[in-house]
């Protein structure tokens, strides 16, 4: 792709930006003002405080699933408590910035525990 094609891509993109509908622009405006409110707003809930409800709900869901499914359930992909926490956690996690590293770490743990054939 040469320079003119990049310019064409930019032109198409800018055109799509210019044609955003009024409802979307209104929501962006509201979001911006909500963000600016945070400048004088209350302090965020502490890290531990944020995890308490998510962890509690995750544990409850896990127990409920174990009770419903019983001990003879067929083999299915393992879903960890962490997975539920990620689903329930609205905030982004800094550790997820380096997913490849954590994938490698998980694979290394499996190998060390002899779970990989």
């Amino acid at each position: 792709m040469n320079e003119s094609r990049e310019n064409k891509a930019k032109e198409l993109f800018d055109d799509s930006v210019d044609r955003l509908d009024a409802a979307t622009l209104s929501r962006l405006n509201q979001g911006r003002h909500a963000a600016l409110d945070a400048l004088q707003g209350s302090r965020p809930v502490g890290a531990w405080g944020r995890w308490i409800p998510a962890t509690g709900v995750a544990a409850a869901v896990l127990v409920a699933v174990m009770v419903v499914r019983g001990p003879n359930a067929v083999d299915l992909p393992i879903v960890s408590v962490t997975d539920f926490e990620i689903l329930l956690e609205g905030e982004s996690l800094e550790m997820l910035e380096d997913l490849e590293f954590y994938s490698w770490l998980e694979a290394s743990d499996l190998e060390m525990n002899g779970n990989v054939s």
């Binding site: 962006l28 979001g31 911006r32 909500a34 963000a35 600016l36 945070a38 400048l39 965020p44 982004s92």
Partner: peptide, 11 residues
């Protein structure tokens, strides 16, 4: 996602 990013930038 954009609103979250705006809030985090401001905070």
């Amino acid at each position: 996602l954009v609103q979250d990013a705006m809030i985090k930038l401001v905070k």
